[in-house]
Design a protein around this nucleic acid. Sequence first.
RNA 1: GGCGCAUUCGUCUAGGGGUCCAGGACGCCGCCCUCUCACGGCGGUAACACGGGUUCAAAUCCCGUAUGCGCUACCA
Length: 510
Amino acid sequence: MPANHNPIRVRFAPSPTGHLHVGGARTAIFNWLFARHHGGSFILRVEDTDQERSTRESEGMVLSDLRWLGLDWDEGPDIGGPWAPYRQSERRETYGGIAKALVSSGNAYPCFCTEEELDERRSATEHEGVAPHYDLRCYRLAADDVAARIESGDAHAIRFHVPKESGESLDGDVTIDDLIRGKVTWKKETLGDFILVRSDGMPTYNFSVVVDDHLMAISHVIRAEEHLTNTHRQVLIYRAMGWETPHFAHVSLILGEDRSKLSKRHGATSVAAYAESGFLPGAMFNYLSRLGWTSAEEREFFPIDYAVKHFSLDRVNAAPAVFDQNKLTWLNGQHIHQTAASALYEGLEARFRNAGWITSPVVSADARRWFEEAIEAVKKKVQRLDEFVDAMRFLFEFDPAQVLEANRTLLANRDTTSLLKDLVSELCETGAPSSVAEYKALTEQLKSASGLKAKELFMPIRIALTGADHGPDLQRIFALLEKGSSIEGLALPVEPALRRIEGVLNELRR
RNA sequence: GGCGCAUUCGUCUAGGGGUCCAGGACGCCGCCCUCUCACGGCGGUAACACGGGUUCAAAUCCCGUAUGCGCUACCA
């Protein structure tokens, strides 16, 4: 028996055919939020019955993508659980047994038609304007005929019989009360007999999903809208087995900018790609949970536990939603701004090393502290992790010739040259300012020496020092440069500020 | 084609008969803060798909149309 006796049990059932996509991620998040909000269980089940496309490697990727998002599960293929196994490919006997029961109760039958034959007959009837339903050929086979063909080893699928004529034991009409969409009804005429078990012995989605959801005691099936019309078939299987149906909630699809279903051609769609391009898991979670769901107070920016506390299916929107990179990026910025530099550093070290800024195999405590200061200095200017490298590049890379070339009008005039000369002599005399007081003293000194106003003073210094017309406070830049040059393991020269200004002056003299 | 679902600013959404000549957020524009760039603050731009009903009153209820999407597979 499971340790958790809460009857709320939901599952996320991905097909392992590549990285987790944002659509699947949102479905997983909604399920997880529902479970955590109600104190129920969240089960992970791998739907790998399509052997052509499923791989164990993909399964590993999907699991790690889910973990990256901050999700955890109570039962799953990697951790087991009371209803193991949690991989459908390992549950064939179970499906086989249920299929047999459906055949003996008269709700299903062996079908010997091959795929090619079916294709042929389908295309033959297509232009007659008739719904392309199975023609019931094998349903009408005589019992001993069937027995004989099975005896002789003829390959066959198992097909479910949708009750059509009055007098059949089940009604083919189905109404569900979807938690997001309300009542949805289908008429029996809509459906043809459909395959339960393929001729290779693998169950189809519509069959295995019912068997597993029932056997795993799933209370709420929360899944994407593309499965809504399949629910008709599934409910019929529940009825034929005499099983109670779970509650259904069909979440709308995520669309690309052109309002078609989000897919690879819309650009990055896997959560792994977003992780790589510098999105924080908390921001991804925040954005995806907000896509189609709002808390009663309509908060936009929130941590995971806020969503757990406030999540409710009642407030999930039935209309499809366009994936908006802009808003994701904004949210990611908000999350970065709120995250401590020490935490940000964790996700940034590899990027810094990659940029060649770290020269030692181990990062010393001093170096780490210095990086955290630098992160703090530029944090509010970035919206993605990868932008930190661009925002901090000026600290490590400086080419006087290039800087002059790009800013000749501003740097190559008499006032600026004498200002920079003054600055050099100040730096030689007192060293680079490392405190607010020293910095103030320096700028006061420069102001009186040059006679320039504050506004005219700072831009030439900024550019001669960083090469850019934007960046953190000059005072912080001096301090960072000064401190960093005395820390081992950082790719910084000694006296970087002085060298840079001198370098520019040298270029000016040429 | 048939069936199903959906339709409020460019986008995410609030709203569920009167409080809505429709509120919030992203984006965009302007202003303020400021040595710069950002952050932040303030303001602006912009929507009830269309047509019929029902009602004293409709973004909200009903019907139809249009559009989009999904399903209609021995994919999930």
